[in-house]
């Protein structure tokens, strides 16, 4: 009896989906299209929507040693560096974030809420103003132009939020499970690793993905701290296509596609966990 309204509903929903898709996906798609165009085609007006003669030149150029314009920005190496930084700092954040998250969720100690709140607020202490003092600190520690330095820095930036997500989700796990393991003779740490952590996997994956993306796409600190070519990261490589005199969107598009691809794969794989982890972290009720 309500056949008609239902079809109408679906059309409406389809339209809304279309609008959302265009808003969210078009800019990404536009860059992707640009990666198959040539420089003259990109400069021409009126703008051609589809590549007139799709070419893979930009991708080839990125990975050929002759391309790098004398700066020898070696894309496999840039990707390797970014990967190293993102993966290592993600591991650090997971390990220490879990330890601290466990303490905040399970143990009683004076100043607990105050410290957790303080950690969360420290997330706001970022931005342009901290560039110089941070550079000074890193150089004092001998960590400028060092991948390890960036790993430590990003870990420090990422830890508060990861701790928070993990703590929130651990709190949802019934204490009884852990207590019964301890009754059976497991130590506190053993019970945490064997019983609690497996249940907290979604939160861990969420924290990991969250941090990975942040570390993978950071630019400001990397650009000022890294000096030698073999330490540079993908974001520095991307920014090198936007100099005052040049703007080669086919390379930006190609590089952006390559940079986004691994992350998208991780997301397609982990999306389910990711939303579930966010649910545990930020959703109560």
């Amino acid at each position: 009896m309500n056949e008609q309204p239902r079809t109408l509903n679906w059309i409406m929903l389809g339209l809304i989906g279309l609008v959302i898709s265009i808003y969210v996906l078009f800019p990404v798609f536009w860059l992707f299209l640009a990666s198959f165009k040539t420089q003259p085609e990109l400069a021409q007006l009126p703008i051609s929507f589809w590549p007139e003669a799709p070419t893979l030149e930009a991708y080839k150029a990125l990975f050929s040693p002759t391309h790098q314009k004398g700066q020898l920005l070696d894309w496999p190496q840039l990707i390797g560096n970014s990967f190293f930084i993102a993966v290592s700092s993600t591991i650090i954040v997971l390990i220490f974030g879990t330890l601290a998250g466990y303490a905040f969720a399970r143990l009683n100690f004076p100043g607990r809420d105050l410290i957790l709140g303080g950690l969360l607020i420290s997330r706001m202490f970022q931005g342009a103003a901290l560039l110089l003092p941070t550079y000074r600190l890193m150089s004092m520690l001998g960590l400028q132009d060092s991948l390890i330095g960036l790993v430590l820095l990003y870990s420090a930036f990422g830890l508060p939020f990861a701790t928070w997500i993990i703590a929130s989700s651990l709190r949802e796990i019934p204490r009884e499970l852990e207590e019964s393991a301890m009754m059976d003779g497991a130590s506190r740490l053993q019970s945490m690793v064997m019983v609690v952590l497996p249940l907290a996997t979604p939160a861990l994956i969420t924290a990991a993905m969250w941090h990975f993306v942040g570390a993978w796409s950071e630019f400001a600190f990397a650009s000022i701290l890294l000096e030698s070519n073999e330490h540079k990261t993908v974001t520095i490589g991307l920014a090198s296509f936007v100099e005052l005199f040049t703007l080669e969107f086919q390379y930006v598009g190609a590089a952006a596609t390559i940079v986004a691809l691994p992350i998208m794969l991780i997301f397609l794989f982990g999306q389910r966990y990711f939303t579930r982890g966010l649910l545990a972290g930020a959703v109560k009720g």
Partner: peptide, 23 residues
């Protein structure tokens, strides 16, 4: 020779940071 090439946009901040840290 240790030659480093930087994005043109960060010229002043990089030089300033290097100056402040004796580097």
């Amino acid at each position: 020779l240790n030659y480093s090439y930087f994005n043109g946009q960060i010229r002043r901040q990089k030089i300033l940071a290097g100056f402040q840290t004796n580097r």
